[in-house]
């Protein structure tokens, strides 16, 4: 899968039309992924880049972050590529694939396909991972994200997600579902973006979903982030 993503990236770079490329560096007080801390409730630093070919609809990008899995430090590498099509001025459709792996003893490598619709600021996506975090079972994840401009450079945003895993969960005696919610406010001071949000998760525990997070991480957290884009 990783080779496919790389091949798509190389093919996109070969497209004659010029890409629009941007990068960002982010400091975050707690690296939360779908409500789960991948940094053991501790701060993390991240680097990301995105490339768009607006005349074709293709896009691609990647991210690197430090993480703390199984009580040891590691790095996460993520790549994605997709296609987006504007249906009208307010509505667009997209689909793509995302590949994630981690350094260290266990790679937890997995790929995920996604599709979604965006209506103005409202974004809805569905993700399917046949082998989520390399745990041996598939998951579906649905999310809704929205944001609204407040006065000046302030904005508010909210996210709700719902994850369902396949396979047998009898050994855990728990649910196969998990929901996560996040809401916060942000301040855009180009090229800086500052956010403060609160996040919570309910349902199946980390271990039942294959997350390699350290034991004992909290389900509720305040998250502060500062991002610099260039």
């Amino acid at each position: 899968m990783f080779r496919i993503v790389v091949a798509v990236l190389v093919a996109l770079l070969a497209v004659q039309a010029r890409a629009q490329v941007t990068g960002s560096a982010t400091f975050v007080s707690d690296y939360r992924f779908r409500g789960t801390s991948l940094s053991d409730d501790r701060p993390a630093a991240q680097l990301a880049f995105d490339a768009d070919w607006p005349s074709t609809g293709w896009y691609a990008g990647g991210m690197m972050s430090n993480v703390r899995l199984d009580s040891s430090h590691a790095a996460q590498l993520l790549g994605y590529a997709g296609y987006v099509r504007r249906l009208n001025a307010d509505l667009s459709w997209e689909g793509g694939v995302r590949y994630t792996r981690f350094t260290g003893g266990e790679s937890y490598a997995y790929a995920e396909a996604y599709t979604g619709l965006t209506f103005r600021q409202l974004v809805g996506r569905i993700y399917y991972a046949p082998n989520y975090f390399n745990a041996g079972y598939a998951t579906w994840y649905a999310e809704l994200n929205d944001s609204i401009a407040l006065s000046g450079k302030w904005y508010a945003f909210a996210h709700a997600g719902y994850l369902r895993r396949a396979g047998d969960v009898a050994e855990y005696h728990v649910s196969r579902f998990r929901s996560d919610v996040r809401a916060g406010i942000g301040l855009t001071l180009q090229p800086w973006d500052i956010q403060l949000s609160w996040t919570t998760a309910h349902g199946a525990p980390d271990v039942a979903l294959g997350y390699p997070s350290a034991a004992g991480t909290s389900r509720n957290a305040w998250v502060f982030s500062v991002a610099y884009a260039w």
Partner: peptide, 29 residues
């Protein structure tokens, strides 16, 4: 300059939020 339709980005669902459109920076470049 063409602006891509809104789509998933590297940091979506991760640290930074569900709002930003970092491609504005790309077009400014």
């Amino acid at each position: 300059l063409r602006a891509a339709a809104p789509h998933l980005r590297a940091a979506d669902g991760y640290a930074v939020g569900y709002t930003a459109s970092p491609d504005e920076n790309a077009r400014m470049h």
